[in-house]
Structure formats: structure tokens, C-alpha cells
Amino acid sequence: MSAIDTSNVPLTNRAKAHRVKWWREVGWRHCVGVVAVLYSIFPLVFAVNMALSPGKTGVPDASKLFQQVTGDQFVTLFTNNRPETQVHFLNWLANTVIVGIFTAIGTVLMGGAAAYAFSRFRYKGRRTTLTALLIIQMFPQMLAFVAVFLLLKSLGEVIPILGQDSLVALICVYLGGALGVNTFLMYGFFNTVPISLDEAAKIDGATHAQIFWGIILRLVAPVLAVVGLLSFISSFSEYIIAKLVLTTPTKWTVAVGLYSLVANDRYAAWGLFAAGALIAAIPVLALFLFLQRYIVSGLTAGAVKG
């Protein structure tokens, strides 16, 4: 993309050439960008259309885009005013946010601590635990829903709060998978923090705990943000285990609740679903945009040098 010398060209031509050059180097990129953006958002436009359509059941006819606009779906969502579909949307949202936050915090702390141990200490069995972890994390918890169900059943008989229909139990199950993928992502990133920093601090008399909490965790903040975000999102979207653990409609998460609205053909409330989906997406979206700058560095830095 070497610069073309334009100084000798007459003025009109120069302006033209300038525009051509702009098009060749920048303008077309904007075109691509607009197309990509359209591609990304047109389903969301459709979702907004569904959410604002008046129908109680069924997929709103797409040819009637924004012909009838009403807030009925949103009203129902919050007031639960239809006898045929009971919607506990506020409960669902609150449950989901609670589960998401605790899962994210737990995952970040436990994953971070484990990654620190793997990255900074050399002890017997380190290699083995790492490999074992790598293998075990390949077993999706969802595949074990039968066993999870039976485990919670027997735990619940001893400690009710760890049994079925409890958000705590659901968080615990999610945290069971916390060490999995995340530890590897973090491990890679932890390795990028020079060990000389630790050693300097150690000479200064800092304990391992002080190094961990005071130095390392701050330096790896991007990856913590990424892991927290990813686990928040995945717990937000998780369906099977949540469905299995939470049996009372008021205790459901958004994923379970919204799915129930469209699961049955006879009375699939797509409009209600879309309205709920749009609202539920807001916390995720906000978090995502807020943490956006960390994501790229968090995802790649560990991978590059790990």
C-alpha cells in the first residue's frame, strides 16, 4: 500500500484520486463493516418485532413487521396477568443473576488459586494433576445429568439446601466444573507473569498468600475478567442441569423459564419469550461491553505464550 505521489495531478483530478484512494484503503472497509453489522443485528430486530407484537401464542408473522406495536408482552412478563401461562420473570431473572454472580466469583477464585499453584509451585504429582484435570474437564457435566440428579437426591436428604430445587445446589454443581477449562486458560496467563516478580517479593519477606492476593491476582486481572465473564455467560445459558435441579417454577433460571414458554406447540408464547429474552440479555450485554477490552488480551495472551 505504498503512497501514490499526487502532487502533480490537477486539482479536480487530485480530489478524485484522493476519493478513489480513500475508497481503496478505507471506504470499502466501511461497506464490509456495515454489512457485517447488519448481519449481526437483523435477528435482533426480529426479536424486537416479536416482543412488540400483540399475539399471545405462535410465531408472529414476519411479513407484518412492526405493524402493530404494543407493550403487552412486557406487561405480562412483569405482572403475570395471563391465566394460561404463569410467568415469574422477575424471579427467574433474580435467580439467574444470583447463580451467575456466585458461580463467576467462585470460578474465578478457585480457578485462579489452582492456576497459581500449577504455575508457581513445583511439587510431586503436579504433572499428573494437570493431565488428569485436562482429561476430566472433557467430561461435560450435562452428560452426567442422571448421576447429578441422584447425587442431589441423596445430598438433599442430609442437607436440604444441597438438594433439589435449591439455587445453592445448582451453584455447587456449576462450581464442580469450575476447575476445568478455566484453569488452563488462567494457567497460560499466569505463566506470562515473570516469576522474578514473585522472587523479588519473597526476598522482601512476602508470604505466598501475600504474593498471590497482592501481586499476581492484580497482574492477571484481564484473564480473571474473561473467566468471570465466560462462566457468568455459560451459567446464564445453561439449561439441562438447571432444569434438572430446579423443579419449582418460581425457582427457575431465565433459560429454563423462557424455554418453558415456547416448549409446547399448543401454547408457545413466542412474543413473551422474545420480550423476556431481550430484557434478560441486558445484564449480560452490559457486562460484556464493560469487560470488552479485557477479553481480547485475556483470551489470547495466555494462549500465545502458554
Binding site: 449481526s40 426479536a47 446464564f236 431465565v254 423462557l258 429474552a277 440479555a281 470488552q292
Partner: peptide, 16 residues
């Protein structure tokens, strides 16, 4: 704007 699909919870967009 482009990353909106990724930020949207996956199960919702699949149903959408």
C-alpha cells in the same frame, strides 16, 4: 455492534 450475537445468551438466540 458486531459482537452482539456473542454477547447474547446462546440458548435465546438459538430459539430465536
Amino acid at each position: 455492534l458486531m459482537i452482539l450475537p456473542y454477547a447474547f445468551p446462546g440458548f435465546m438466540t438459538a430459539l430465536l
